[in-house]
Design a protein around this nucleic acid. Structure first.
Lengths: 210, 210
DNA sequence: ACCTAGATAGACAGATCTGTCTGTCTTTGC
DNA sequence: GCAAAGACAGACAGATCTGTCTATCTAGGT
């Protein structure tokens, strides 16, 4: 699936800020600030100022802050799944290796000093089920469903007896790795959890073959 | 370690709200609201109103909101470690079973409709390394260190070759379970991760014995 | 050259947030 | 029964937040 068609963000990550069109400049600035400081800590005025845009221009492109937040999360989701798909769809990998490729892909981000954890776990913290922001909540819910479906699709070819159980364990190792990478900055988290996942998969495959 | 001495919260969880002294009433109200809606979403005025306390009384007991937030987190930490210690120190458990007891202890909270994830992961989301709230950040950092130390102490008697690696994997399964329990409400997360932990532990013990 | 669409700067309204202050009432110890 | 300490209600200040509005400027298409 080509996310660029859906989001229209193009290569927003590599362009210099000043060269971007207003809408992309706003989104990139907001994305950086939201991820770094949390959504509630960053006001519209700051995003306006740092993206060098007029207030009316902002509200022309994003009808409300909630709208910008939802767009920010969809943007993060698109980039993240793009990375995951690149890693897992590499040709020549066995079904098991495709799953483990997720943990290899995590290693780079974990080592980045800008890494601040999972935007969607952070999103749940700020916009939980009791919040009043349906768009944002729907985006977060969709992310977790999509990640589940991706892992489920990778587990399916293993032909396990209880695939959902293994899917849940793999997802736990992924989410757990992200939390651990954020709280301790230990660079070995990704590798340690990769090995844990391998053990789980091998064991599940072995008992399915019996 | 007796947390009650350190925190002085006593049995704040079971008393009816009106019977509590002002300080405890404030803390219980704030704790519920912060956990449910996030810290930044709940203003002092709301805490004042719902705890039925005067504003001056509030500021007499808590010099600032940041102070209340740090106290809230220390309170949550104390309760959580109390539960963990009760579960893991039960007599008659083998070293491995003590570790697995953590996942058994998670099962109850996961099934509670009031469950909203880990207060400290949420805390990191709102008060990350770039925030300006040293007390709160220190409390969060201390929590992750304490949890690490608790698991490390449980892993130590297993006599593994690379205990830190197993500690990290166990911690990942714990944090991952919490994230998964919050995002999906699947009641089987705790059990699935308990089994994953058992596999990891047995495998690590086996290769240490060799 | 002109006209239109969109960007710019910045004032403004209304709500909300933290924290301070005043003055009255209630409770408690002696 | 009384004095002292603490809790009460609520106004207030100053900052900040989202979102609206006006009025000017700039860039492109024809």
């Amino acid at each position: 699936m080509d996310m660029a068609d859906v989001t229209g963000f193009a290569d927003l990550e590599t362009q210099p800020l000043a060269a971007l069109a207003p809408r992309e400049r706003i989104l990139k600035t907001a994305s950086d600030l939201f991820y770094r400081f949390s959504v509630h800590s960053v006001g519209i005025d700051r995003i306006i100022a740092e993206s060098g845009v007029a207030k009316m221009t902002f509200y022309k492109h994003f009808p409300s802050k909630a709208d910008l937040v939802a767009t920010y999360l969809r943007h993060k989701s698109a980039l993240w799944f793009q990375m995951l798909e690149t890693a897992t769809e590499r040709p020549g990998l066995s079904p098991s290796e495709r799953i483990l490729a997720i943990f290899d892909a995590l290693d780079g981000p974990f080592r980045s000093p800008a890494f601040r954890g999972c935007p969607f776990v952070k999103g749940m913290a700020e916009f939980g089920p009791d919040a009043d922001a349906p768009d944002v909540q729907a985006t977060i819910t969709a992310y977790f469903k999509d990640l589940h479906d991706l892992v489920a699709a990778l587990v399916e070819p293993l032909g396990l007896n209880r695939p959902e159980r293994t899917v849940m364990q793999i997802l736990s190792l992924i989410q757990g790795a992200i939390v651990m990478a954020q709280s301790t900055r230990d660079p070995l988290v990704a590798e340690a959890n990769r090995d844990a996942a391998k053990l789980l998969i091998d064991s599940a495959v072995a008992s399915a073959g019996a």
